[in-house]
């Protein structure tokens, strides 16, 4: 694995969900420290693709290599590689009064995969958690229940979970879903800042094409197959979007800054 090797290399990947072929013969690669967006209409196979890349869903065909290591048929990866991957889901199943504090949750991000008693904690772990919470602006939330957070706070805590130990690949599945415009903007700014500091390679599923245009280096347009890919200005042109989403989608470019709400 050299400095120029891709962090993620996907070749001829197909994923079947039941009777349906959700993803067909998709190939792409993510260069080190780049931000790639995966866009496409609902049902295009974005989450299936992400699931297969992470080894959560079985592949019908194709190969996935992460940091130079081939992903096994049942999603096997060496622990050293697995611990380099972070994933941000859309939401967490937090029922009322879930007995877990923010600090405890972020602490789980420090621990290596597998069975361990690391949750009992030590000074190094506590310091890592506090540092991660500070970097994501969540230092006041450490003792709160995870289930008592607002949507925006929860997303920042999820970022703290990712940043609490060094990682190389960050995968986000519509991580900004459910956030209002200012919160989404703040989340994206924080993500960009952390990506620069941490040297993350990012793959994010998103429906926010304006955000993708402004902050991503590469766009993958998926609708079962990879319809197009490249720099945002190329991949998100009016003609490409019409091909991907249908003729009724007209791109609108926001050239103004989002004004944060004060209240």
């Amino acid at each position: 694995m050299t400095e120029h090797s891709p962090v993620l290399l996907v070749g001829g990947l197909s994923v079947r969900r039941g009777e349906r072929l959700a993803v067909e013969q998709v190939s792409f690669q993510l260069a080190r420290e780049t931000d790639t967006a995966l866009v496409g209409p609902n049902g295009a196979g974005k989450s299936s693709l992400v699931g297969a890349v992470l080894g959560l869903l079985p592949r019908s065909s194709g190969s996935v290599r992460i940091l130079g290591h081939a992903l096994g048929p049942a999603g096997e990866l060496p622990r050293s590689v697995r611990s380099q991957i972070a994933y941000l889901p859309q939401s967490l199943a937090l029922q009322g009064r879930f007995p877990l504090t923010v600090g405890e949750f972020v602490g789980f991000g420090v621990d290596p995969p597998g069975l361990s008693l690391a949750w009992l904690g030590n000074r190094r772990r506590t310091e890592a958690v506090l540092r991660a919470l500070e970097r994501t602006g969540c230092q006041d939330l450490a003792e709160r229940r995870l289930s008592a957070l607002s949507g925006g706070q929860l997303k920042r805590v999820l970022l703290a979970f990712c940043v609490v130990r060094p990682r190389q690949l960050l995968v986000l599945d519509e991580a900004q879903a459910g956030l209002d415009a200012p919160s989404s903007e703040r989340f994206q700014e924080l993500l960009l800042e952390l990506r620069r500091q941490e040297g993350w390679t990012v793959l994010q599923v998103s429906h926010d094409l304006e955000m993708v245009r402004r902050s991503c280096d590469q766009v993958l347009c998926l609708n079962q197959r990879l319809r197009c890919s490249g720099a945002p200005d190329h991949a998100l042109s009016a003609a490409r979007l019409a091909e991907l989403y249908g003729p009724n989608v007209v791109p609108y470019r926001h050239d103004h800054a989002v004004v944060p709400a004060h209240g």
């Binding site: 999603g75 994933y87 967490l92 199943a93 949750f105 789980f108 597998g114 995968v171």
Partner: peptide, 13 residues
């Protein structure tokens, strides 16, 4: 982690 989100748990090994 499994209780919170099974994909999150799976991605973290």
């Amino acid at each position: 982690l499994l209780t919170l989100n099974s994909d999150l748990a799976g991605a973290f090994g």
